[in-house]
């Protein structure tokens, strides 16, 4: 069965839940019943598979794991469910209504659309070498693009439905050229997968692109010639493409976080799953760390203003 990236989140969370059950239930006596509804931003997680397939697979896997966890740890989360959202506003509404206990979405969108007091603690995945999954501006080496200033008139590839990467290239162009990237670049095309962007640049179908470091390193690892022909021009230290947060007052949030941080490293299956996605582990991610994206967005708005562009709206 194909295991898309969002399942890593689900599986990781669920393994953590198993640990919670194992730790809590025997000590506390009678098992408590609760729910864990996970909301996932579909546009950022359905990269390898279809939306509906991802949701079905994730729910199936979560329920199967829940049944196993119940037997082993008297873990009484009786209702576990993964819900995909195409609309970030809808996901926020569900969280506020208590229909969701956890959200998984790009940090830039969470910083942009969620208030800080609606959330509490969360996870962020990091790359194999411990580096954050940064956003990279890459370009083909033989195209003479050594910096942003060489982008003028070039064809660039961007990730589809990824607001941060678009803001990032726009930020760079505004900063360098005082103009939006649409006015600087000769052509802008969207690709669903970052790896595809890298390969298109490698095969000379585009001049530059914006991707995540994880994808770049993955492709460079598969073919070292990619790293030679496709160079990194700029980067933005985004922690991860997706981060997760529990809703405020979710009772097991702290325990799940602790277990995810400690036990995941010991669990062979978890490590195997994370290895597939070039993620060595899940680390706690505080709500306060969203401030980096707030600041970046503020700077971006300023640059837009300086370039005479209308500011983007934000909740």
């Amino acid at each position: 069965m194909k295991l898309p990236i969002h399942l890593a989140w689900g599986v990781s969370i669920f393994i953590a839940l198993q640990w919670v059950g194992m730790v809590n239930c025997p000590v506390k006596g009678p098992a408590q019943t609760t729910q864990l509804h996970i909301g996932l931003y579909a546009r950022s997680i359905t990269e390898p598979a279809g939306r509906k397939d991802s949701e079905t697979t994730l729910n199936f896997l979560l329920k199967e794991l829940l049944a196993a966890a119940k037997k082993q740890h008297r873990f009484n989360i009786t209702d576990i469910k993964a819900i995909l959202f195409d609309d970030i506003d809808g996901m926020r509404a569900a969280l506020l209504l208590g229909d969701l206990d956890m959200i998984v979405a790009p940090p830039f969108l969470i910083s942009k659309y969620f208030k800080r007091d609606e959330l509490t603690m969360g996870f962020a995945g990091v790359l194999h070498n411990g580096q954050p999954d940064s956003i990279l501006l890459i370009a083909r080496a033989d195209k003479g693009i050594a910096s942003v200033e060489n982008l003028s008139g070039k064809k660039i590839l961007l990730l589809e439905d990824d607001e941060l990467t678009e803001v990032f290239i726009d930020y760079l162009c505004l900063k360098q050229f005082k103009k939006s990237y649409k006015a600087i670049l000769s052509a802008v095309e969207r690709q669903q997968k970052a790896s595809h962007i890298i390969l298109d640049i490698y095969f000379n179908k585009a001049d530059a692109g914006v991707v995540f470091r994880g994808a770049y390193e993955l492709m460079a690892g598969l073919n070292p010639d990619v790293a030679k022909k496709v160079m990194v021009i700029e980067s933005y230290p985004s922690k991860s493409r997706n981060v997760s947060f529990f809703r405020k007052d979710y009772p097991y949030a702290k325990e799940i976080l602790v277990l995810a941080q400690t036990s995941f490293k010991e669990d062979a299956r978890t490590k195997q799953i994370l290895e597939i996605f070039r993620t060595s582990g899940l680390y706690p991610f505080n709500v306060e760390e969203l401030g980096q994206f707030d600041e970046f967005y503020v700077d971006y708005q300023k640059l837009r203003h300086q370039a005479g562009l209308l500011p983007l709206t934000r909740k």
Partner: peptide
């Protein structure tokens, strides 16, 4: 679209 060909076959082998 050699990028797709590579990507698809990488997935196939994976």
């Amino acid at each position: 679209d050699y990028g797709f060909i590579v990507e698809h076959n990488v997935e196939v082998l994976k």
